[in-house]
């Protein structure tokens, strides 16, 4: 469920970075105020545990396939929501850097999708509520299962929103939602069952671990829930509105709506694009055709955003130029390599 850099727009990436940083700063502050320095090594080592434990395949009876452990909720239950969120952020940072699993710009999205909903929504609203009147194996099992399910559903929906707002793929909103939610219901069920089994075991073997975390009040009280709701609304607003306005061409949402609605207006624009690109591809064969300028002219004349037309790739010279650019890049690399080798042979250190 990791978002990749290639799928997001800078606006969405930036907005989610901002939201994630906000939540992280709040969490860090909370831990520092509690003066719980013991938590830091605990978070560090538990982060490594979740990372490694994700390599364990838990086979699903009767299917021949297997599932994994869900990290976010497990961390919230074992370390508390704030520490869990920060630990999740560390894990995702390392995955992004070492395994290119989720990108650096998409980091904010990923921490939010996998950490926020589990630690700050599912954990306080479901897990804590169900275990409020004391722990028991059944309660812990149900609470873990349901919280993991909810966390994953919210995370998946968040992925859909971020992708659609970014407008890099052609996936219509409705189709994407219909694709993501059921898949993640199945994944969530398995993750939830594994997580529940693990949490229940830890509770039986060493109940004080869970009970210590459960004692931390703060999040159970109403005031903080208000804060969180406010935060969530703010995030949605920032994410939605900011990304809409920040991109010069708000093709993301507009396009998504057009596409899913499938209105006549869309067909009209499509025809217009066809005509435009047709004209463009023909005129591009003229040797002295400065298509850059006329492009924008045509586009503005047609009252259209400059989107499908700007690309020079629709002409032979564009393709040729692209090829030459790549060739030049490769040649530069080779030249540097050659210079380096020669200098090395000559005994220079570089």
């Amino acid at each position: 469920m990791h978002m990749a850099d290639a799928l997001i727009s800078p606006a969405v990436g930036g907005a989610m970075w901002a939201a994630t940083s906000g939540v992280a700063a709040y969490s860090m502050k909370k831990i520092q105020v509690d003066l719980d320095e013991k938590k830091i090594p605990m978070m560090g080592v538990m982060g490594a545990f979740v990372f490694a434990a994700q390599m364990i395949n838990f086979s699903i009876p009767g299917t021949g396939s297997s599932g994994h452990i869900g990290g976010g909720l497990l961390l919230a239950v074992l370390l508390g929501p704030q520490a869990g969120f920060l630990t999740m952020a560390s894990i995702l940072a390392i995955q992004a850097l070492f395994f290119a699993d989720g990108g650096l710009l998409a980091f904010g999205c990923n921490v939010f999708n996998l950490g926020f909903y589990t630690c700050f929504i599912a954990y306080p609203l479901i897990y804590k509520r169900l275990t409020r009147n004391g722990h028991s194996e059944k309660r812990i099992f149900a609470a873990s299962l349901l919280s993991t399910l909810l966390g994953l559903q919210l995370g998946a929906f968040s992925v859909v929103l971020q992708t659609v707002f970014s407008g890099k793929t052609e996936l219509p909103f409705g189709t994407f939602v219909m694709l993501m939610q059921p898949i993640h219901l199945a994944i969530g069920l398995v993750e939830g069952l594994v997580t529940a089994a693990v949490v229940a075991f830890v509770w039986k073997a060493s109940p004080d671990i869970l009970e210590n975390v459960a004692k931390e009040k703060a999040l159970g009280s109403i005031s903080t829930r208000k804060v969180l709701t406010g935060l969530l609304i703010a995030v949605l607003l920032v994410g939605g509105v900011f990304s809409w306005f920040a991109s010069a061409n708000p093709d993301g949402l507009e396009w998504a709506m057009l596409k899913t609605a499938g209105t006549a207006e869309l067909e009209a624009t499509n025809k217009l694009h066809a005509v435009l690109s047709d004209i463009q591809s023909k005129t591009a064969f003229l040797p002295d055709y400065s298509f850059k300028a006329s492009d924008s002219e045509e586009a503005s004349a047609a009252g259209e955003e400059a989107w499908p037309v700007v690309n020079a790739g629709t002409s032979v010279s564009g393709i040729l130029g692209g090829g030459l650019t790549l060739l030049a890049a490769a040649l530069t690399g080779l030249t540097i390599n050659m210079i380096k080798k020669r200098r090395k042979r000559a005994g220079f250190e570089c």
Binding site: A24, P41, M43, G44, G47, A48, F51, L86, S90, I94
Partner: peptide, 11 residues
């Protein structure tokens, strides 16, 4: 402290 925690996880 966040950086410390991150490096601990990496370690």
């Amino acid at each position: 402290l966040f950086v410390l925690q991150l490096t601990l996880t990496y370690r």
